[in-house]
Simulated scan of single mutants.
Amino acid sequence: MNVRAAETINSWVEKVTENKIKNLIHSQVLDEFTRVILVNALYFKGAWIEKFHLTNTKKTKFYKSRNEVVKVDAMANRPSQNFSICISKELKAKLLQLPIHGDASMLQNLYSSLQLGVHRIFSDDDADLSGIAGEKGDLLVNEILQKTFIDVSEEGVEAAAATDLKIPIPYCGRKHRPQKFIADHPFIFYLKVKDMIIFAGRVTEPYY
């Protein structure tokens, strides 16, 4: 029964994410204590409104830490009215918004005090999943499984995930004079569609 349930879940996730996310859950994760399995998957593919020219992609330094530096392929483009750069004093961060066709955009955050995480649903004392079943304390989460895929290229963005995440972005004023935005150290990024954040992640280990 557990094997069949895992196969059903994995097949659905694979279909929804255009074969980008495979084997999300293993049958051994399901046992006699399992009551509910919540599965959420998304797939997004969009093209930049202003594409990056492949000839501008160059090897550049990425500072994983103060003492660890690697060379990565970095896309580049000249300042444009399509790009929004703003500075948040509250978060001590610099943000870049890159528009995508279809009322979407990608935001990059260098670096902020934002923290990604959920804790209460794992606690016997604090977990309240009565909206699903039972009373407060009857159910709690003991494990979260997540697989993600994102490909950012000169043409656009392709992303898939087996979870959903919504995080508000604080308001910050747009700067009118051209500014440089150089993503040469760890940063947080978001994919936003119609003011809803559908994908969030953190880049600390760039592909090189």
Rank of each mutant, 00 (worst) to 15 (best):
M1L: 13
Y171D: 05
Q108R: 10
L42P: 01
R177I: 05
H26D: 14
I121C: 06
L91M: 15
V13D: 06
Y111T: 15
P99M: 03
D195R: 14
I150Y: 13
K61G: 02
S80W: 06
Q146M: 11
V152I: 15
P168L: 07
I150Q: 11
F52K: 08
A93W: 08
R4D: 13
E68L: 13
K59Q: 12
P99G: 01
M1K: 15
I197C: 08
L98N: 00
M75N: 11
D164V: 03
M196N: 07
E205V: 02
F52S: 06
V72S: 06
V157Q: 10
G46V: 08
V16Q: 14
L139F: 00
K15E: 15
E68M: 10
T17N: 07
K59F: 07
I87Q: 13
D125M: 01
P178H: 04
S113V: 08
G131H: 00
N19A: 13
R177D: 00
R4F: 09
V72D: 02
K94M: 14
N82R: 14
L129P: 00
L95Q: 15
N142D: 10
E135C: 01
P186K: 11
S84W: 05
L95Y: 11
T148C: 14
S112H: 09
L42K: 07
V157T: 04
Y63N: 15
E90N: 15
Q108K: 06
V141L: 00
D151E: 13
K166G: 00
Q97G: 03
T8F: 14
F181S: 03
A159M: 07
E18R: 15
I37P: 03
V203I: 05
V70C: 10
K166H: 03
A74G: 07
V13N: 08
Y63A: 08
P170T: 08
G117S: 11
V70Y: 05
P186T: 07
I144G: 06
T60N: 15
V29N: 07
T17F: 03
L139K: 06
S80R: 10
V203Q: 03
G137C: 00
A133S: 07
V141E: 01
A183D: 08
T204A: 02
A5T: 14
F83K: 11
V193C: 05
M106T: 06
M196A: 06
